[in-house]
Design a protein around this nucleic acid. Structure first.
Lengths: 195, 195
DNA sequence: CGCCAAACGGTCCGCTGGTCCACTTAACCC
DNA sequence: GGGTTAAGTGGACCAGCGGACCGTTTGGCG
């Protein structure tokens, strides 16, 4: 038996309610009890379905992640296959950045829950590997793995949010900074005079 | 009356105990009650002195912060005043990185407590401004403010810890990556082909 | 030595994420 | 279509947290 009708109904309701609440209210004010109450179910129903709050947030994000993944695999170039390495890289950066902007609240909810949650989930690992790949195509000689992590870290929702909301950096300036960062040619990685 | 003798004694004890506990045990296992109990005082004594747990951690960090600040203001070049801009920048990066390595547990305890706590406290703002200054001296044309935030973000204790412990990047490789990042010449900031 | 404000600390509180288990209900089979 | 059954449900419950409260203790000073 795949899924009972009431369970399916509740699953859809819970996902919708969770997304709605996270988008519309302070992240800190979203509690398990509140989601359950708003959805008209018990807390255990939420937890049975999604394991814990983390799982719920990941489930809300899942279709959006899948959409971006599909765009990479089968979409039009240069985000999809095709185009110059540089164009591929920059299209990907734009797509990631837009993804973060659209889903910053949900992503932040994930980030704040468990140490390393931002990097450790499987979706992030995929984004980072893809970033590494596209960076390497542009900068073959550099430590692209480290650079990929730095760029991905600069894409953290809390970082972007802080720079935009608290430091008043316009979104376009942040976007330009990201592109700029990824476009730099590192040359030889051992040019540092540090001891 | 400045500070009563018992209060001073407790303050010293609490600071020592807090540092010891954070250095020696899992950060997640350090609770207010545990610190108070280990120090042999009540929880209210800790809170009265330091406001909240955040304040306690900041107080533990304070002398180390002050030492680094002094090294910048009056220390030997190129960390202190003097030396070429590039040497100043790289010495500063090394000092910040060492600071993070030495105090990563305490810094992480801060990071995890309140959103934007990593950037928002006054010490961090000082580090970032200084980083901006030294970057600007090397890359006058670039968006050094954004770059300063990116580099500072790459110095987050959780990021460094994750790269080292989970991704098995050696400390020296991370350090080299940071130097490399800061040494890149951004050229004209509008070189990105992004739409 | 005695006063008193500062310091103290254990109890209490509200809130959290998550568990438990008696009850409900949808789905399958006859 | 009705009975059986296991999946689904939800509210009471739990342990742990940071922090507040307030009666008690204690150090410093006249």
């Amino acid at each position: 038996m795949a899924e009972r009708a009431d369970a399916a109904r509740n699953r859809v309701t819970i996902l919708a309610v969770a997304e709605e609440l996270y988008q519309r209210h302070e992240p800190g004010s979203i509690t398990l009890a509140r989601i359950a109450e708003t959805a008209g179910v018990g807390k255990a129903t939420v937890l049975r379905r999604f394991g814990d709050l983390n799982g719920l947030v990941e489930a809300v994000l899942a279709p959006k992640v899948a959409a971006l993944r599909d765009a990479l695999r089968t979409g039009a170039p240069p985000l999809g296959p095709g185009g110059t390495p540089a164009a591929q890289l920059h299209a990907y950066l734009d797509a990631l950045f837009d993804f973060v902007l659209d889903n910053r609240v949900l992503i932040r909810a994930l980030e704040n829950r468990r140490p390393h949650a931002y990097y450790a989930n499987s979706a992030s690992q995929f984004w980072i590997d893809e970033l590494d790949r596209r960076l390497r195509a542009v900068h073959p000689a550099s430590d692209s793995k480290y650079l990929a992590y730095v760029v991905f870290t600069a894409l953290r929702a809390d970082v972007v949010e802080y720079l935009n909301a608290e430091q008043h950096l316009p979104i376009d300036r942040i976007r330009a900074g990201l592109h700029n960062l990824a476009a730099l040619d590192p040359g030889s990685p051992s040019s540092s005079p540090a001891g």
